[in-house]
Write a protein that binds this DNA or RNA. Structure first.
Length: 479
DNA sequence: AAAAAAT
């Protein structure tokens, strides 16, 4: 599909998407050989250096976005079927799914050879006829995004020029990231288009959306479905909630998500995906999703094993800042994310670090969407090594080179209690794909020390003290 | 407290 036919939020994405789509301007034939390995052949073998360079650039951007081809047989999968009498069904290859050829082509073009563990189990359930609902929990980096994107693409009828699949993301940045995966995997459908229902993407009044798939954030999607009537919700066949626990938690986007859900037809397929589901949210999920199939992939301990966790003891915010400055040299060996509790602290911290001569980027919800898109793009490309941010980037954002996460403020909920889910999501920005990661928690009071202890108890994992005056130790950790 | 909104 042509890049310019997509409804994109801002020019920044257009440029990025264009560099991705250049990858496949040439006709490509993809087929598995006798051993199941994928063989790619270009119809036109001749490529200029310039094209090769573009290919490599696009591929590396892609690799940063998508790494779900992880096959890890140590994972324990728990499957609970809606109909316990139907046979338990899982696939070991994408061929077994009988996907449309254009879709299979898209899957292989992304470099996926075999389904990941979650995909093996979730795909047959999601593709079964008549359609069934699914609640799936599995760790970041295990292929959730590709799984539900595949489910949407296999149900869509490109000939019908109206939205049929709807996907909700909790933040603007995540919607863009997931959108790129949809574009990539669906690129061999010539007629297929994707619309971004995100802040700042304004359309003319009174028109209807012709794009077959819509990805967006809850506020805009709700407007498009109800007040503005850009989308006819009654025609939606597949409804996906990414990071589903925040989307339906009282403290998250519950109101809007549920209002959208109520507009959908009774037989609409509902797919809920997240890495974490806190108990009460899990119960609520099963209440709002009729007759759900359930898949859980246990991997929590493993993730925490690949991430070294430390804390730095300080007595106030300025000491935290000093400690952070001591760490700066070590954390910039690769890329780092620094999380603050409020937008105000984040912008203060970014400014202070800049004054000290450290280059940092700032990303928070108070910035304009164009600016946010530009910053996340620079961070993805590695042009920015350190990102100071809020919980807006706690979930889903996938940048491969991030090896350090710093909690300048520990994650707490509105009552000031430890927010274990957010903690796991934040430190999960590093140590992805089985890589080693480092998490440093800044403690500045008795109160925050007690929050850290409770987080430590919850995960039953020792968080060791780190002395930032001891540079040898810092060097040791960073390497 | 953050995020999400064409209010």
């Amino acid at each position: 599909m042509a890049t310019d036919s997509w409804a994109l939020a801002v020019d920044e994405q257009e440029a990025a998407a264009e560099s991705l789509s250049n990858l496949h301007l040439k006709e490509e034939k993809i087929r598995p050989d006798a051993n199941g390995a994928v063989v790619k052949t270009n119809a036109n073998e001749e490529k200029t250096d310039e094209e090769e360079k573009e290919d490599r650039a696009a591929q590396s951007l892609l690799n940063k976005l998508i790494r779900s081809n992880l096959v890890d047989n140590t994972n324990q999968v728990e499957v609970l079927q809606r109909d316990p009498n139907s046979p338990l069904y899982s696939v070991k290859s994408f061929e077994e799914l009988r996907l449309k050829p254009q879709l299979l082509q898209g899957v292989y073009a992304m470099g996926f050879n075999r389904p990941s563990k979650i995909q093996e189990n979730a795909l047959p359930l999601m593709l079964a006829e008549p359609s069934q609902n699914l609640i799936a929990q599995s760790q970041s980096g295990t292929g959730k995004t590709a799984a539900f994107v595949l489910a949407m693409l296999s149900q869509v009828e490109p000939a019908n020029r109206y939205p049929q699949c709807l996907c909700l993301s909790p933040t603007y940045e995540l919607a863009l990231q997931t959108g790129k995966v949809i574009e990539q995997m669906g690129k061999f459908y010539p007629e297929l288009k994707l619309a971004y229902a995100v802040r700042g993407n304004k359309l003319e009044r009174g028109q209807k959306i012709s794009e077959q798939i819509v990805i967006g954030t809850p506020g805009t999607v709700l407007d498009w479905c109800s007040k503005l009537k850009f989308i006819d919700p009654k025609k939606i066949k597949v409804f996906v909630l990414d990071e589903a626990d925040v989307m339906i938690a009282t403290q998250g986007h519950q109101d809007q998500s549920i209002r959208i859900q109520r507009m959908l037809p009774r037989n609409c397929q509902m797919l809920l995906f997240s890495a974490t589901f806190e108990d009460s949210v899990w119960k609520f999920a099963q209440k709002v999703v009729p007759d759900p199939n359930i898949i859980k992939l246990k991997r929590e301990e493993e993730t925490l094993d690949t991430i070294k966790q430390y804390y730095v003891l300080c007595s106030n915010r300025d000491e935290k800042f000093q400690a952070l400055c001591n760490l700066y040299g070590a954390i910039t060996i690769a890329q780092a994310m620094i999380f603050c509790h409020t937008r105000k602290t984040a912008s203060w911290l970014a400014a202070e670090l800049s004054k000290e001569g450290h280059q940092v980027a700032l990303l928070s919800g108070e910035m304009m969407v164009e600016q946010r898109a530009a910053v996340i793009e620079r961070f993805r490309k590695g042009k920015e090594k350190v990102l100071v941010t809020t919980n807006v980037c706690a979930r889903g954002i996938d940048v491969e080179q991030v090896s350090v996460v710093i909690n300048f403020d520990l994650p707490v909920d509105k009552d000031g209690n430890p927010d274990n889910e957010t903690y796991l999501h934040r430190i999960g920005r590093t140590g992805r794909f089985g890589k080693r990661g480092l998490a440093v928690n800044m403690v500045d009071s008795k109160h925050s020390m007690s929050i850290l202890s409770r987080i430590q108890e919850h995960f039953n994992k020792k968080i060791e003290r780190l002395d930032t005056d001891d540079l040898d130790e810092i060097e040791k950790i960073a390497n």
